[in-house]
Design a protein around this nucleic acid. Structure first.
Lengths: 112, 112
DNA sequence: AGCTGATACCTTATGCTGTGAGGTAGTGTC
DNA sequence: GACACTACCTCACAGCATAAGGTATCAGCT
């Protein structure tokens, strides 16, 4: 589903951010959507229509696991990252560094 | 054609790189395709089917101008950046910094 | 002379990905 | 009992890059 000649990273950012957030603590979908906005200081604002399908995909790939939990009179699907998801996170992080590095090579050069 | 709620930057990378390259010197299409591979150390490798349409689009928007030139027995379309293209480059650079910064905020945090 | 491969340009069909708009349902407040 | 927020979900649509195709010229080889 991934694997291209070019880093599939110009699209796959949501996957990276979701896995990273889950690597820190168990979270539920709605919370993730908000967290991405807040923690990137509005640099990103992926819609629910993007994040939910990603969570389902990640779960089907055993990158994350979910469990139903009742909190504050609310029923929520909490997601945890799996070891496989952790490996995936490492891969995506490395690829992001490659991408950001590549652009820095061209943009950087002679100023801040 | 651009303008979204989210930075349209996860796709618009080619536009940024093309403008940046042209801001340094006059270049032709084929050369740009190669330069992106080489100067990003293979981090990116956009195909001709991506770059040529971009050049045409940029020209139609007066971001770049072109002229036919005979060099080494070859006929080439050389492109130069215009003042408008320069402004666009500044905008895209700023947006890239926002994006890269946003991801760094999440990824960075508490380790290297 | 004929072939191959590189240069140089171009276009099209296809596919992935996120958006935007929708829809359900429960909770809390005024 | 109306409204807003939480929490989940889906689908039609569109942007963007890819892969694969096409044309033509030039250099080198045999």
């Amino acid at each position: 589903m991934l694997k291209k000649t070019n880093p599939s990273f110009l699209n796959g950012v949501p996957e990276l951010l979701v896995l990273k957030l889950l690597s820190r603590r168990e979270m539920y979908g709605y919370e993730i959507v908000r967290a991405i906005q807040v923690e990137t200081r509005e640099a990103f604002s992926f819609g629910e229509g993007c994040i939910y399908p990603y969570l389902h995909y990640l779960e089907s790939e055993k990158m994350v696991a979910s469990r139903r939990k009742e909190v504050e009179g609310r029923s929520r699907n909490y997601y945890q990252i799996t070891p496989r998801g952790g490996k995936r996170l490492d891969e995506l992080s490395a690829e992001w560094n490659r991408v950001a590095g590549g652009i820095a090579l061209l943009l950087g050069g002679q100023h801040a």
